[in-house]
């Protein structure tokens, strides 16, 4: 039987014991990574947004100590490969799950939603603020170019005020996101598809707004970076 077929049958490649763990429960050899594993199940976590970050971190360190390639340098080529693949999954999963926004996006994707990429739409309720900010930034750049310090400082105060307002807006949105996710996390198993979809649509909408604001905040920051 090929290694891939063994994997489908959840058999250890070495001793054919049935196993679904990182290491064979019988011969303790590292196992081939099942690529259909999602980041939550890799950490043996339920597919929920709210999680204990401290616990996640501890688990990450514990698993790193178990299958990092540093500990397989004298093993067979096959086991070295398994170790690298498993560790890369561990790192990718940890990186995604520890950041709330990345985790939210990943959760949406797992539910068949498109990830929120760079192509965000301008949120209609923010149009006025965005328009003003862009104008301020343009003038600020002009002031910088013409070395008009008085004008620059006046505009800087204005931009920083807008920045503060945007940050507050983002915090509100994150608060909303957290509460909707609380609803999602606690949905009973028998809840309807409609109900699920409604929540997810809502989440997707909020995520896209947060992403948009974060992009704006980055633009502001760049302006003041030297």
């Amino acid at each position: 039987m090929s290694q891939e077929a063994r994997l489908l049958e959840k058999q250890c490649w070495n001793c054919t014991t049935l196993t679904d763990e990182h290491f064979c429960t019988s011969c303790e050899r590292i196992q081939l990574l099942d690529l259909s594993t999602n980041y939550f199940s890799f950490f043996k976590l339920p597919i929920k947004f709210h999680l204990n970050l401290k616990e996640l971190e501890n688990k990450f360190y514990e698993l790193s100590r178990k299958f990092h390639p540093d500990f397989f340098s004298q093993a067979s080529e096959q086991e070295r490969r398994y170790s690298t693949e498993r560790t890369s999954m561990l790192n990718d999963a940890y990186r995604t799950l520890k950041e709330p926004l990345k985790r939210a996006n990943y959760l949406l994707r797992l539910q068949g939603f498109k990830a929120i990429g760079q192509e965000t739409k301008t949120p209609p309720d923010l149009l006025a603020e965005i328009f003003e900010l862009n104008e301020q930034l343009e003038e600020l750049r002009y002031a910088k170019k013409s070395k008009d310090n008085t004008l620059f400082n006046t505009l800087k105060t204005q931009v920083l005020d807008t920045e503060k307002m945007l940050k507050e807006r983002a915090n509100e949105l994150i608060y909303n996101l957290n509460s909707i996710f609380s609803l999602w996390d606690n949905l009973p198993n028998n809840s309807s598809l409609e109900e699920k979809k409604k929540l997810l649509n809502n989440i997707s909408d909020i995520l896209s707004k947060i992403k948009y604001i974060n992009n704006l905040l980055e633009n502001i920051e760049e302006e003041f970076d030297e």
Binding site: S88, N91, R95
Partner: peptide
């Protein structure tokens, strides 16, 4: 459009995929 689309960001722990 000759654009570079990032698939693994800098400062990602390695191995990364």
């Amino acid at each position: 459009g000759n654009v570079m689309t990032k698939i693994i960001h800098r400062n990602s722990t390695i191995p990364a995929s």
